[in-house]
Write a protein that binds this DNA or RNA. Structure first.
Lengths: 345, 345
DNA sequence: TGTTAGCACTCCAACTCCGCGAGTGCTAAA
DNA sequence: TTTAGCACTCGCGGAGTTGGAGTGCTAACA
């Protein structure tokens, strides 16, 4: 059942050739591979065995072999040698990050472009969530009768805002009172706990302090909306989908593009509670349209907590090695950038 | 030189048929058209004339005709009868807007989706700029040594924020002084005038009030950055590009998709100083990749000033009539929504 | 004079046919 | 166990063929 070293060698070679050429690879071509010393005939025998075991398939009799999903999986799990990160890519990334001392959001957005152009695939970046950040300040700024903007600033300097409403005849003192209570009770609280932990306690306090109790409650609930904000999604390199030979079929390409378009759907492709690198090959993606795609993802962190995801979408025939390197390197660089940024540029 | 009514009728018919079928239309097919009473032979003669004048072309001898760019242009300028807006579309839009009492940004983003699914083309929406809005409040919230977030709220409730830096040993009073001066001098000033008009005056005032003058200046300049923010671009329905027969050629499709991806580039497709509806057919778009595309755009307004653009990108063979209707209707509805929203939901 | 029927002609698109070549599996020899 | 040899398979691309849609032209007709 286990593969012999020679079979592993051949499987690797098949995958690497196929990744490069996007065409079924035959025994003759493989024999030319430098670290393969056997004759085509031997290779044919081995390939027949590999096919029988399900690691390779044949589009039709008398054509070369292509790796099956199982083949890719074995390759990723056992054969991938962690080679050097692409030198140019490394330089490019390092360069990108040292130049940047900008707003986080902009950097994160641009990462999706960078990642896609490095990998020549589609890159997906889920913006850093603020669940672990703490409330630094809450402001209520009136902008009209019965209307105000609530602004919430976190300790790392993220700003969220939401429009709130109250009765038109509320008094200025009441608004001030509300803001004071909010700040008293909420500063230092992690965003993730905003709603759950403090709702009851805060309501009580507000009831004691503020005349217009219902208004205060409404505001409270509206402010809490910021915790429900879904992560922002940045997608770069969607056009790269079309340059993959496997998606020259317009139907397929379109189904993938429309999938990418509904930003929300993309979120589900990322494993919720894993922090390391994950690789989902073909049918391992539950989504139908991704049957012959691979989604490789990893997380980036702030203060040791994963706060966001980056990922690459490509055909199952992708350069796993290279893309894995780039992804890991990018994640590390992004993590470092975030840390540097949030401790003071 | 001028077209006879019959020629106009035939031109219309050719265009309308071609828009529907995406295939060259011949004299026989046209003769079946209900408001055409002449025989195929007559039609052939007229079409030959129209071709000679450049309104139609023939992919090859002995095939039907297709409209030339000049043909489309004439059609748009002279023959388009403003018919009823698509009933379903109207209902759909009305529905969308009455349901929505949400954040502007979200509505604008969703408009791009709505517009693309109504037109089955790619929709481009340039978010409302805030140039005409006025400063309501400026806040400086410290988030670390020498670091703060500057928050600017406009009279309609837009919130922009930017990170600012000053010497680490600046005193709290100085920060307060800066904020006070900023608010004193800037509240009520239109965003567009922020930098130009008040820079000098403000600097003077700050020099008088604030000890750390350089710091204040730096902050001022950083705050002004928000005026440089480029308009946000939302693009919906990029996948629709692929469903157009003319873009089944992967090359073409890709060049258009990559164009769409660089959000910034898209901005230039919108005429700067026109407010009504514009139609750019084929080569009228200066961009090379859009040679067989039409970009139809219009603006939406707030308080009578155009504040943003919406547009539709499709093949020159697009349903001008329908898309024009939808665009105008959407623009009107969006304008109305904005007004309602900014005067208090 | 403008319109129409008829007809010969054109040309694309789709289909079939065929040969090439890359690749295989099997067998027999090393 | 590996390799050389050989017969076989099958997709792909080019050449040849055909059908049909559409044209332009001419001549007849209102």
């Amino acid at each position: 059942m286990m593969l012999t070293p020679r079979q592993q060698l051949i499987l690797s070679a098949v995958i690497e050739d196929y990744v490069r050429m996007a065409e079924p690879v035959g025994s003759r071509a493989l024999a030319k591979h430098e670290d393969i010393q056997f004759s085509p005939a031997t290779i044919r025998n081995e390939m027949a065995d590999l096919e029988e075991m399900g690691y390779l398939t044949q589009p039709h009799t008398s054509s070369g072999r292509i790796p099956s999903q199982k083949g890719y999986r074995f390759y990723v799990d056992n054969l991938l040698r962690q080679s050097q990160v692409d030198r140019d890519a490394g330089i490019y990334l390092k360069d990108f990050f040292t130049k940047r001392i900008d707003e986080v959001e902009q950097v994160v957005r641009e990462i999706s472009t960078v990642l896609s152009s490095l990998t020549k695939q589609t890159a997906i970046v889920l913006g850093p969530n603020m669940y672990t950040e703490k409330v630094r300040k809450i402001e209520l700024i009136p902008i009209g009768p019965g209307r105000a903007v609530a602004i919430l600033v976190t300790d790392t300097g993220h700003v969220e805002n939401v429009h709130v409403h109250f009765s038109e005849d509320i008094r200025v003192e009441d608004v001030e009172a509300i803001v004071n209570v909010l700040n008293d009770k909420l500063v230092g609280v992690p965003i993730s706990k905003l709603r759950s932990n403090l709702y009851a306690e805060l309501a009580e306090e507000l009831a004691r302090t503020v005349e217009r109790f219902e208004d205060a409650l409404a505001v409270l609930s509206e402010v809490c909306q910021v915790t429900d904000r879904e992560e922002t999604v940045y997608i770069g390199g969607t056009a790269n989908v079309l340059s993959q030979p496997e998606f020259h079929d317009v139907e397929k390409a379109q189904s993938i593009l429309s999938l990418l378009e509904q930003g929300g759907a993309v979120t589900t492709w990322f494993p919720k509670d894993e922090r390391g690198l994950t690789v989902r090959i073909g049918a391992e993606n539950s989504v139908g349209a991704l049957q012959d795609c691979t989604v490789m993802t990893t997380t980036y962190s702030l203060y040791g907590h994963p706060v966001g995801h980056i990922g690459v979408l490509g055909p199952t025939r992708m350069d796993y090695n290279r893309i894995m390197q780039i992804l890991q390197y990018t994640s590390a660089a992004l993590t470092e950038f975030l840390t540097r940024w949030s401790t003071g540029n």
